[in-house]
Design a protein around this nucleic acid. Structure first.
Lengths: 345, 345
DNA sequence: CCTACTCGTGAGAGCGCTCCCGGGCTAGTT
DNA sequence: AACTAGCCCGGGAGCGCTCTCACGAGTAGG
């Protein structure tokens, strides 16, 4: 009796068998109805549906998984050694996209986070062991073999961002970093700026490379415009500040800066203020990521916004297609960015 | 043959049965070893362990769940109608704490997000249907019946933050908002400030109420100090700016502000600058949350930091205890905050 | 009118695990 | 020596579902 209380849970969940009994059909038929098979008469379907409704039947996930050998869930893997993962709205937004797209198809979203090397190995174990049908990988490092290991294993995987060592046909979704950077730089040019500097990200990451390429592309062919006025940062504020100081030293006359991340732009703002430059009067500046911070700087930062939620949705769609098709390779999807205009230009 | 290729997946995962065969024992014994039962001889244990190692055996989650009638997973439910959920580091940090604590006990973390009312209902369905053993609820609104509905259903639930309509024994973890606000205000006083204003949060949320209470508590009994110099905001930057303007109007002589959120503090900074006040020379200011933004304002913002990751861990620990004990009620846990000193004081 | 299908349905056989019962063995007790 | 008490261990039953196969009834074709 104590046990009965213990298990609590009000009414025990009805099983297929009970629904079948109530509807006056067999288990098989109920299963067919529940799974939307066309092979069932209207009469049977109706009475099953009624019984389902009445008993409040919900399929038991575990039993289904066991029988189908599918997990009916996908992993969202964050393999970030740094701790600041979620301070960036990027992840949250991506997650939201994934969540929305996934809930439509009834799959579970299992969140897996790994910081230490040991956890990293566990993640691989976990995914390889078929606990999930596929995985969305975010913030994977360049030399991380995880995606390929999983692909070899036959597990569908989709990454966010183009991997550096582009393995042929490794499925990924990315925003058009080249075009975003190009548009930002072009915007500065169109506003009449002529000495446009760049603070770029690390060149061992595709975002870093692409955003620099976009900057160069925008300035290519323009006469009398320096286009190698760039300093390198690591996306952090400090590095942006340092880079800005270097740039001011190299060219005190510069009148605009394209920063490959908002954080670096914030650092640049500080350096500019310290150097007595007014923004945007003396120097215009554009960042990248459209982070929360961009809205609160002084002046507010014009920035390139990535369609993060959409990226999440696309990744999920791609993953579901892979899972369904039993494949592990796919053409990448590149989504357009958007320039958000604020006071810094 | 095509099928064989399709299913891919390299080597099929070994089952208990196969491990048993390899180890020369029965299924039961392998199960006992895997689950750490003491009722097994050293010899048997050793040979099972060896077989497990060799075959790379990992228990099938679905089968286990089916047999034990447990889900071996908990849900992290974000029921936030707003879209800015993850722009605040709070959630990410909480999530990390939950993830860390959970991975130690081998449970899955299922992320469930709900924005629309319909999704809200689905979440309830989902959790009630026993897909998870328990749930961590964050950012629940005051009038949201979700936690109680789940509790009635017998599902263990832990909330973040003290609920307003404090249902007796609804389990929650919170930081000590009263004490955090008190310490911040007291700090301002100790630094010699005497006209300390407050920008408080909405009074229909416990955080809003508590932080105001802390402010009042710090000033109680101090002679010649105004302690009702407060304006209300809604935690947003705009509301902070507005509140600050009101306060300056009411008392142009004020020399310090305690803001109940960093965002409001940022707004206040703007208003102060617009009014020609220097921070911290003329007016000192302290925020709350120690957000990413606090680090990037000018000057950097002194703020109260909540032990968010720890809160996540505590919530998880509490939840696991509830699950294990088959209970749904528990004493709340209140964790201390910390004042992070930066340039704004 | 018989054969050949098609279509809807029922039933059996698992999926891989845990739980529990009972048998065999050893050690301790009278 | 006989009996009991433990301790290990094996194996059956069953968790709730899907899937395959076979069967009966209807329909069309020869």
């Amino acid at each position: 009796m104590v046990e009965a209380t213990r298990s609590g849970n009000g009414s025990a969940r009805p099983t297929l068998e009970q629904v079948a009994a109530a509807a006056g059909v067999s288990r098989g038929t109920v299963s067919r109805v529940v799974n939307g098979s066309p092979q069932v008469s209207e009469a049977a379907r109706a009475s099953v549906l009624e019984a389902v409704q009445q008993l409040g039947y919900v399929p038991n996930r575990a039993a289904r998984s066991l029988a189908t050998r599918r997990a009916d869930s996908v992993a969202f893997v964050v393999s970030e050694p740094e701790s600041r993962v979620f301070t960036e709205p990027f992840f949250g937004s991506l997650l939201r996209g994934v969540s929305k797209e996934l809930s439509a198809s009834g799959l579970q979203l299992v969140l897996v986070m790994a910081w230490t090397a040991r956890e990293h190995a566990q993640v691989e174990q976990y995914v390889r062991n078929g606990h999930v049908d596929g995985a969305v990988l975010v913030s994977v490092h360049g030399d991380d073999p995880l995606p390929w290991r999983l692909m070899e294993n036959g597990t569908p995987v989709v990454m966010s961002g183009r991997p550096q060592l582009s393995h042929p046909s490794l499925p990924y979704v990315d925003s058009d970093n080249v075009e975003g950077a190009r548009a930002a730089t072009a915007h500065l040019y169109e506003r009449g700026r002529r000495r446009i500097a760049a603070i770029t990200g690390p060149q061992d990451m595709s975002v870093g490379v692409d955003r620099l390429a976009g900057y160069r592309k925008a300035l290519r062919g323009r006469r009398g415009v320096p286009r190698d006025l760039c300093a390198f940062g690591d996306f952090s504020q400090e590095s942006g500040e340092r880079a800005m100081r270097q740039l001011l030293e190299r060219d005190p006359e510069l009148d605009a800066v394209f920063a490959a991340s908002d954080m670096m732009a914030v650092g640049a703002l500080r350096a500019l203020r310290a150097a007595g430059r007014r923004v945007p009067d003396d120097v215009a500046i554009i960042g990248f990521d459209d982070s929360e911070t961009a809205r609160h700087t002084d002046p507010p930062l014009t920035s390139v916004r990535q369609p993060t939620e959409l990226m999440g949705r696309e990744m999920t769609r791609m993953l579901l297609t892979l899972i369904e098709g039993g494949s592990t390779t796919s053409e990448p999807v590149i989504l357009p960015n958007e320039l958000v205009l604020r006071g810094s230009v």
